[in-house]
Design a protein around this nucleic acid. Structure first.
Length: 454
RNA sequence: GCCCCCUUCGUCUAGCCCGGUCCAGGACACCUCGUUUUCACUGAGGUAACUGGGGUUCGAAUCCCCAAGGGGGCGCCA
């Protein structure tokens, strides 16, 4: 069997949404799994909306998600150019080829594909009354994910507009032929178009590729498939919100495909190894950002500390939580207790800002919670302070101090936890309190608690 | 209107091809309890589904038919 060649063929509209990303991803996965080629072809035939900036939206997101292409923009390749806008001469040549064969004809200034046999609706006036069903064997498509699908194309259709430009179906097929595409993996919204495409392949006398129509991604709330306008539909949003690209990619894989062993968070190499079109689902999936967040959090936790630090430092610098003077060692100390609790890099600044400044914000919700519980947090801190001041600054010793004060005041040690946390960080949650105290350090911790208690 | 595809917990799904091991398993979310914090961590539990109706069969989530629901396509858009 010859080498697998798949392509992703977006049109640069200025958006790169999650559905396109998933289609690209499945193509990429299949190419990598099969040791084939992944081709990126830009369908920029629509001159109205076509610019370098729009193209870059796509290329940036592709790179961010780690989908590298073997042929296409910036890569070249033996079947270029990879921009349809540069292939217009080819399309004219191919149209002429069909016309010469009698498979294309002109009508109203446009060019139409003539279907074979009785199905062709010639433009003769007397046939124009339209629609009498023509008995013809349906096209049988053996789709790699949907199995046997039957559909008959029963009317001629336009392949070249009267303005001289070819239509999508035509260029798509011509390019797939020229680029030797072996498998077409695309959204189910193209399933009904496939009969047109197969007709075109046959008209050219070329064996059609194998098709795999993958399920669509539905919007998380209302009806219908996800569109550019929906919340969370654009890849760049997740980039901006500092999701890990590998986590977004991982989640996208889960929309329409399931790892055999049920382990959902896994490295891309493992996904490439396991992925197969035969296991792609047939039904549409609803997008769920909460699950994607979960995948993100899990992935974050699994990162080696050095890698986590390399991601965190620029974010903390940018948000002025730290400045360049903060050493790697100090940062590592703080990140060490933060990494397993935080769910997104986006939250890092607010989550750990208090380690680097005493001038932190007080969380109103947490504050309300403190008093709602009935106790007086300031009084608790006052009761505790002497014991902390006397304690050796290690977690076991601090723990013992909490216990002793609790016992002396007939309280649970944990009654002191929330007030202390709030006093030193202004927050209601965070890493384990004893480790926060340890990492924050004795002087800073005590100073903040004294200030809080007064 | 015509055509095509799909249909298991709220959501993502396993199981369906090769009917009994499924009073349906996992994950997210939610709830409860625990972990020396109220937490986004972590641990243990819990609520929750085979769209409906007919068949076939000793037996159906699994096979067949119909209906309903959902999605998509029907353009000189891509």
């Amino acid at each position: 069997m010859s080498q697998v060649r798949v392509r992703f063929a977006p049109s640069p509209t200025g958006f790169f949404h999650i559905g396109s990303a998933r289609t690209a991803l499945f193509n990429w996965l299949y190419a990598r799994h099969m040791g084939g080629k992944f081709i990126l072809r830009i369908e920029d035939t629509d001159k109205e909306r076509n610019s370098e900036a729009f193209l870059n939206v796509i290329l940036d997101s592709m790179r961010w998600l780690g989908m590298d292409w073997d042929e296409g923009p910036g890569m070249g390749g033996p079947h270029g150019p990879y921009f349809q806008s540069q292939r217009t001469e080819l399309y004219r040549t191919k149209l002429r080829e069909l016309a010469d064969k009698g498979r294309a004809y002109e009508k109203d200034g446009a060019w139409w594909l003539r279907l074979e046999g009785a199905r062709s609706r010639a433009h003769d006036e007397h046939l124009k009354r339209d629609y009498e069903k023509v008995d013809s064997p349906p096209m049988v498509l053996d789709d790699l994910v949907r199995g046997r699908v039957e559909r008959a194309e029963d009317r001629d259709f336009v392949i070249f507009r009267s303005n001289g430009e070819p239509v999508f179906h035509f260029v798509n097929v011509v390019d797939d032929i020229e680029m030797r595409i072996t498998h077409v993996i695309r959204g189910e919204d193209h399933l009904s178009n496939t009969s047109k495409h197969v007709e075109l392949f046959r008209a050219f006398g070329v064996e059609p590729p194998r098709y795999a129509h993958i399920p669509l991604i539905l919007k998380s709330d209302g009806p219908g498939k996800m569109s550019k306008r929906d919340q969370g539909a654009l890849i760049e949003e997740y980039q901006r919100r500092r999701f890990l690209p590998e986590a977004v990619r991982n989640y996208l894989c889960l929309l329409g495909w399931t790892p055999a062993d049920g382990k959902e968070v896994l490295p891309i190499g493992e996904i490439v190894r396991q992925f197969d079109l035969k296991e792609v689902h047939q039904s549409n999936a609803r997008f769920d950002e909460r699950k994607m967040s979960h995948v993100n959090a899990q992935t974050l936790r699994g990162l080696p500390a050095a890698e986590f630090a390399a991601l965190a430092r620029p974010i903390l610098l940018e948000t002025k939580v730290i400045d360049a003077s903060v050493s790697d060692a100090r940062l590592a100390e703080v990140l060490g207790i933060v990494q397993e609790k935080v769910i997104s890099l986006e939250h890092l600044p607010e989550f750990m800002g208090f380690f680097f400044t005493a001038d932190f914000k007080q969380d109103e919700g947490a504050k309300a919670n403190l008093t709602k519980k009935g106790g007086d947090p300031v009084a608790r801190v006052r009761e505790l302070l002497p014991a902390l001041e006397a304690a050796e600054w290690t977690e076991p010793a601090l723990e013992a101090a909490f216990a002793a004060v609790g016992a002396a005041n007939n309280r649970k040690p944990t009654d002191y936890f929330a007030p202390v946390r709030f006093g030193i960080s202004g927050q209601g949650g965070g890493p384990h309190l004893l480790s926060v105290l340890r990492v924050l350090g004795r002087e800073r911790s005590l100073a903040r608690l004294r200030a809080y208690a007064s």
